[in-house]
Design a protein around this nucleic acid. Structure first.
Lengths: 238, 238
DNA sequence: CGGACTGTTGAGACCCCTCAACCTAAGTGG
DNA sequence: CCACTTAGGTTGAGGGGTCTCAACAGTCCG
């Protein structure tokens, strides 16, 4: 089955870095390849964790639903990233729901297989640990931002981060590579779609961004960076 | 050196669960035991990660400092828990500063040794992965709380969580096992010490808690739980 | 063409932060 | 043992950043 997976794709999967050819072959042999379609869920919040995923292509949104019905986006997953690792070994439940937003393909392993593979190829476990550590660090940073920073700065950071993850430079500016609504941005930054809308409109008036339906185009990345970072330039424009 | 570590202590260390006696001996042989004193730092934020710790006894507070000088508490670490795992394999920097708040002892390994041990005993890596996964899930929950919930509820949750971690039931109520200031609670919940003080005083008037210097005693855990959870009882007291 | 979804904008309220003053308890040194 | 210092805590007044609610506009789609 691994003849269908180009080396070029595999080499960009951080989880597999440093594995020997033999180990890689064993891991891939144990995997299933599955197509995923928009709207589909890879897993549901609070369901028992039964599978571990690596996204080959496409895009997935992982979100938590609060008891009151509010959504909070945990993260956006792009090609080459892993999913469902939190519940991996501990045999617990998924902390959120993984909804496919762009079609693509995933590699899937079940729980016992994953554990078995990691025991036979410790490199795999170490890679997973390192990647998960990066996720943990990111969540810590998000907590710090939520606790200490104003909404405008959080939105600026979120837009820049998304552009960094999946940005494409076109003639009119830096586009985010997938549709993203005001509601999505609100759920990422922990605010409301109203406040996001006001913030973005304000930036558009100052020429920092261009707006569209489910679209944000960054025109002046430097100025956005200034809002996101400490540099309170506040050059009394207008 | 492991003759100085009682089996009773070792059995409570989640990281070592499921290791064979031989593996455990090898891991412990590679470790250094170090006493730690209040005020001391196990590691500093943004310093290159060089060591991995397991806390045997004592208590450690891990906090992030924002560029503006505000502190955010990442977590409190108690006996048997591991520290510094985020930077472990990835060879990156520590995401926060680990300050000792109660004297005790730690086990220490350096980076290469840790990696070596995990390769030889995959169970160790899997345990670390599971524990770190739990931490990640907790951070996700905290983010959700910060993004969607009122301060009073966040403080209630924090107090209950701390009591769960290190609570001791005495005659006058459930004590948190270590001194904790209003400032600490503010840094945990992402608010200010003023708001924490007002919230706690309000609870004290209603008989839910008793307050002291760097001390909070839970008198009515059920009522606190009601504030922390959805159950807006709001039984117009007074 | 009508409905559903996404986005914008205004008005009002309120939660919470900020600043300031003051209080109490715990150390400290003469 | 007492003045002094310091750290932790409380409380009040005021202002402002965001949320909430509501109405409306633009866009996509059957």
């Amino acid at each position: 089955m691994n003849d269908r997976l180009s080396n070029e794709v595999l080499s960009r999967i951080a989880l597999f870095r440093g594995l020997s050819d033999a180990e890689l072959a064993e891991v891939l042999d144990a995997a299933q390849v599955r197509p995923i379609a928009p709207g589909e869920s890879l897993f549901e919040q609070d369901a028992d964790a039964t599978a571990f995923f690596v996204l080959l292509t496409g895009r997935v949104k992982v979100a938590q639903l609060t008891p009151e019905g509010q959504q909070v986006v945990v993260r956006f997953v792009g090609p080459g990233e892993m999913l469902g690792c939190v519940a991996l070994v501990s045999g617990s439940t998924y902390p959120g729901t993984a909804e496919v937003s762009q079609a693509g393909r995933v590699l899937v392993w079940d729980g016992p297989t994953t554990e078995q593979l990691m025991k036979r190829a410790p490199r795999l476990a170490l890679n997973a640990l390192a990647i998960q550590g990066r996720h943990l660090r990111e969540m810590q940073n998000r907590c710090r931002e939520l606790a200490t920073e104003r909404v405008e700065r959080r939105v600026a950071r979120a837009v820049l981060r998304l552009a960094g993850q999946a940005g494409r430079q076109l003639a009119d500016g830096l586009h985010i590579g997938f549709p993203i609504s005001r509601q999505d941005l609100a759920e990422i930054t922990g605010t409301t779609l109203y406040t996001v809308s006001r913030t973005l409109t304000g930036w558009e008036r100052r020429g920092l961004v261009a707006l569209g339906r489910e679209e944000v185009v960054i025109c002046d990345a430097v100025a956005l960076q200034a809002i996101a970072e400490d540099l309170e330039v506040t050059l009394a424009a207008t």
